[in-house]
Design a protein around this nucleic acid. Structure first.
Lengths: 190, 190
DNA sequence: TTATCCGGAATGAACGTTCATTCCTGTTTC
DNA sequence: GAAACAGGAATGAACGTTCATTCCGGATAA
């Protein structure tokens, strides 16, 4: 078994347990057990639980970005670009409920606040969403209000709708997904 | 000191500590200390921590409802009614950051899921928001999509924007609040 | 080829801490 | 004097993390 195998086993076990039971329903001992690994072994790969949690977040983020960018073109209209990102994201999250649940846990925790602050400060590499809204404002097709609010208007509902689907409050099909993304567009468009 | 005084002290202490530090940053012993009360005393008023948490939620809900209804009239247009509820809610939450932070903690926790499910099942008394959307759909001024999605579109962003204000990512003044509520309206209106 | 040795990876029992809850003692109230 | 109440030390369960020990595969020696 290669070195990274065990690391992956640990990450997968953490993803499953945290997504289903939250940070506090996923003790290290249980993560170890589900990964088929000794409790101490986790600490050979991750300094502590906090590091494990943030590494897992980065891992998921890295998985999503190429999916979003597949077929995404800066040549298209702002509206089309928004629709592309929105539906692809919605579809991805619905097809990967574990990852969605994990992201939700992460975002609604002190980890998430730190992450959000860093993002807004522009500490990151290229951010397609920020780019899209900035283009939209300068082309006068998007409301000229603070970026943060545009994020809230557009992605807050997308996450909320995904959660409702996963909790079985609604059944999102392609039609309903389209309607939802369009509704979000209505809220940010001029 | 009257019987309810102590109960209120406990609720207030719990509100402050949970809002600032989350459920896990608010041990019962600390709540007791902040309330000026013995640890055991809390259990004379609340069966256990879960009960304390849900009681506090109900308390806050009860405080907000009359504020929302003040000046609210079913005679006005759907648009006006939406604007009224949206801005009043936004203003209230911004002026009562502790209550907002508590609500956020509550909603993003297993407690919140249960509460949401009950609400959607219509287990509750009159719900002004549900009423508003149902009227809007039948008058054909609101998009004919599932109620849940309308909630997500309208109130997700309002909560998100409030959080960003409280975290100092933006400064919401009356203008910006108006713009935000209008943007939410754009997303639900036909 | 076989026997011995070696180093790092893996282990899981044990530790110290934290927490919700209980219990017993003292105090107030009537 | 009895009954209800309040207090906070005591309790036991759960947790993250540590560390002395075991395990294992490859190198070395005979």
């Amino acid at each position: 078994m290669s070195k990274t195998d065990k690391r992956d086993d640990i990450l997968r076990a953490a993803l499953e347990l945290i997504a289903e039971n939250g940070f506090h329903g996923a003790p290290m001992a249980l993560i170890a057990e589900h990964a088929g690994v000794g409790a101490g072994t986790i600490y050979r790969y991750f300094e502590n639980k906090d590091v494990l949690i943030t590494e897992l977040f980065r891992e998921i983020e890295t998985r999503i970005i190429p999916v979003l960018l597949d077929g995404y073109s800066l040549q298209k209209s702002i509206n089309e670009r928004f629709f592309h990102l929105g539906t692809v994201m919605l579809r991805y999250l619905i097809e990967n409920p574990l990852e969605f649940k994990y992201l939700e846990q992460f975002i609604n925790s002190p980890f998430g606040v730190v992450h959000r602050r860093d993002k807004l400060m522009g500490k990151n590499e290229r951010d397609v969403f920020r780019e899209l809204f900035e283009d939209g404002i300068s082309q006068q097709v998007v409301k000229n209000i603070p970026l943060v609010i545009l994020f809230d208007l557009a992605f807050g509902p997308l996450l909320a709708v995904t959660r409702d689907h996963i909790l079985d409050f609604i059944q999102l099909d392609e039609d309903l997904m389209g309607l939802t993304v369009n509704a979000c567009w209505d809220s940010v468009k001029r």
